[in-house]
Design a protein around this nucleic acid. Structure first.
Length: 151
DNA sequence: GCCAACGTTGGC
DNA sequence: GCCAACGTTGGC
């Protein structure tokens, strides 16, 4: 069992959007970074814990608890010329990008970036590292536990 | 809108 | 394989 933090722009898919979806489950479309893709493809298992994070917004932070709800499968948006995530170089017989389904279990009061930084036990979370742009990072069990306690 | 950080691309 | 240029992310 692993834990992850997954960033989503609320304008794209907020925690409320995800909660409103069928079974509170959304396909995590649009990841176009190999490291993040590899986490989904090779690292994630159904049932893994997910911290739902809002990025590129007024109050970035952790806004929900979720779980990995599927194994990895091809991201359909890579084949859709209308999609901003379209990738002309990806072939259906050899898809370049995959995704997993993410199911929100609980919306929590926003644990903002400043609030995360204020907690010494969370200080070395990957998402808080300077220059971190990765949309999916692994979360250590101790960090997960601390956040469950704080929420 | 600015800018630091970092990933990707492409010429050589 | 190197590395400069360029593009993107994301906090502020």
């Amino acid at each position: 069992m692993n834990y992850w933090l997954m960033k989503s722009e609320p304008e794209e898919c907020s925690v409320d959007d995800a909660l409103a979806a069928k079974n509170a489950t959304v396909p995590w479309v649009g990841v176009r970074n190999y490291q993040a893709r590899n986490f989904m493809r090779d690292g994630m298992q159904i049932g893994d814990g997910v911290l739902f994070y809002h990025s590129s917004c007024a109050e970035p932070g952790i806004v929900g608890l979720a779980r990995v709800a599927s194994t990895a499968y091809p991201d359909p948006t890579q084949f859709d010329p209308q999609s901003p995530y379209y990738d002309a170089k990806s072939k259906p017989e050899e898809p370049r990008w995959v995704l997993v389904d993410v199911q929100v279990l609980e919306k929590i009061p926003n644990i903002t970036l400043p609030a995360l930084r204020a907690r010494p036990e969370l200080a070395d979370m990957l998402v808080l590292k300077k220059g971190n742009r990765l949309s999916i990072t692994q979360v250590e069990a101790r960090h997960w536990q601390a956040i469950i306690k704080v929420k």
